[in-house]
């Protein structure tokens, strides 16, 4: 059984179809890229998988269990973590506290009043920050971080949930070229070492074709191509979409 199985997923907004009859599978230890032009439905698709939006129809099976109607909190508890296109972080906290917050939630310590939050799971938070190369900035306010660093913090927050499935919405947008490589390299390592499954969107085609095991191409909400990177790259319809149809 695949870790994630999406069947006939649909979502429309005010009559406009954002995701139309989307089906795909994703296995543990696999890195799957979701690409497509603006408005193709990538972010909507992410929101449907993580419970931020509710699908009009279709099923999202995580190890066979339908999670399509669960709220985001519950989906997270089942081991699905995500990052957002525009980083969603807690701006009134330090870098470390952001990660501690996620750890507190995972260890179900939200309603514990015996110790201040900033003293809980410090070591674990620092280990995660070291993984994303943010250990030296642990004490800084996230509000002053560079954009690329925010993306790293967000990744550490997502990893704090010990996910089986990681959804990354444009993880490298706003980062310099070498930093992009490093971040995607980290994601690849996690996939290999922990058997994590990763679904990500990305505009940098070098990153997509360098890192993904398989690529899905969306256009106007519909899946128009899927397969290994080389095949997708040669696909005429994909080329048309990217360069524009005459």
């Amino acid at each position: 059984m695949s870790l994630l199985e999406v069947r006939n997923l649909r979502k429309s907004f005010g009559g406009v179809s954002a995701v139309a009859d989307l089906s795909f599978e994703l296995n543990s230890g696999e890195m799957l890229a979701l690409i497509g032009p603006n408005g193709a439905g990538k972010s909507t698709c992410f929101d449907l998988l993580s419970g931020q939006l509710r699908a009009d129809a279709g099923r999202v099976l995580l190890e066979g269990r339908d999670i399509a109607t669960l709220p985001p909190q519950s989906i997270w508890q089942l081991g699905v973590a995500r990052t957002f296109q525009v980083p969603a972080i807690f701006s009134s906290m330090t870098v470390r506290e952001n990660v501690q917050m996620a750890l507190i939630s995972r260890h179900r310590a939200v309603w514990r009043f015996s110790r201040p939050a900033s003293a809980l799971f410090r070591g674990e938070a620092d280990t995660l920050l070291a993984e994303v190369e943010m250990a030296r900035q642990a004490e800084r306010a996230v509000g002053v971080l560079a954009y690329g660093d925010l993306k790293r913090v967000e990744l550490a927050i997502a990893l704090a949930g010990s996910p089986r499935l990681l959804l990354m919405d444009e993880p490298t947008a706003g980062m310099a070229a070498d930093a992009r490589g490093a971040l995607i390299g980290l994601a690849r390592r996690l996939v290999r070492e922990r058997g994590l499954a990763v679904l990500f969107t990305e505009h940098d085609m070098e990153v997509v074709f360098g890192a993904a095991d398989r690529v899905l191409v969306l256009d106007r909400g519909a899946l128009i191509a899927a397969g290994d990177p080389a095949a997708v790259r040669e696909n005429q319809r994909v080329r048309d979409i990217y360069l524009g149809v005459e």
Partner: peptide, 22 residues
């Protein structure tokens, strides 16, 4: 200052992110 207060602040800072970490 306890986890509760932080979680509350987390919800205020970014509701999406708060939900996405459970």
């Amino acid at each position: 200052m306890a986890p509760f207060g932080y979680a509350l602040r987390a919800t205020r800072d970014s509701t999406r992110r708060a939900q996405a970490i459970g």
